[in-house]
């Protein structure tokens, strides 16, 4: 690692942020505000150079005035700041929701409902090539049915329904546990990344 002003700034800011683990302090708040400001500035610059200029202003400059339509639609969003004409903001919102729903509902229905339902159906093929894959498929089927039963509120959870819904809770808790485990792993990984940077920095410094 080369010791340059950027790496020095990165190392100092990392230490400032980590100082929060002891307690809140001005150095942490300085780094936090700097991060928010720089992120916003960076995003604005990148959006200008990669989205607005090439997709809107450059074509307009070349005389492609059809691009005025999306520009006006986009600008209508800002009317929500003026109460008298704020209803105009509904136009681009309606356009976006209409387009988004039309495009995404069939795709997500196919990918997240039909395919997942298909994956839950048990057939003799589920036990091939290995019996173990069939056992896992059976556990998945039981888990799906039990969890769905837990979220079935039209009947009181008593008797058989109650027992199945309690099994559903166990599956849900296992799911939460897996998610929590992965979350811990993720946070530790991020900390490892920062510590590796600091170790390399201080090794290069001394």
């Amino acid at each position: 690692m080369i010791i340059n002003p950027w790496n020095i700034a990165a190392a100092l800011l990392t230490l400032f942020i980590l100082s929060f683990l002891y307690k809140d302090n001005p150095l942490f708040r300085f780094a936090e505000h700097l991060y928010v400001g720089i992120s916003n500035g960076y995003l604005i610059a990148i959006t200008w150079h990669n989205a607005l200029r090439p997709n809107l202003f450059d074509p307009l400059g070349r005389g492609q005035y059809i691009f005025l339509i999306p520009m006006v639609l986009g600008l209508l969003y800002f009317t929500m700041f003026v109460k008298r004409i704020s209803w105009l903001a509904r136009l681009p919102i309606a356009f976006l929701i209409g387009w988004g729903a039309g495009v995404s509902i069939p795709a997500y229905f196919q990918a997240n409902i039909l395919k997942q339902l298909h994956g839950t159906i048990l057939t003799p093929q589920s036990f091939q090539p290995q019996v173990s894959s069939g056992i896992w498929a059976t556990i998945i089927l039981i888990g799906v049915v039990a969890t769905l039963t837990y979220f079935f509120f039209s009947t009181e959870h008593k008797g058989a329904i109650g027992r199945v819904s309690r099994l559903g809770i166990i599956f849900i808790m296992i799911g939460f546990g897996a998610s929590f485990g992965y979350t811990v792993m993720a946070r530790v990984s991020l900390f490892i990344g920062r510590l590796k940077f600091l170790i390399e920095f201080f090794r290069a410094l001394f």
């Binding site: 990918a111 395919k115 997942q116 298909h118 994956g119 998945i140 799911g175 897996a178 998610s179 992965y182 979350t183 792993m185 993720a186 990984s189």
Partner: peptide, 17 residues
Amino acid sequence: VTAVMGASYYPYLQTRQ
């Protein structure tokens, strides 16, 4: 994906999506 997201992608692995 990041580890936080890992658990939520297992259903896609099971269906070979």
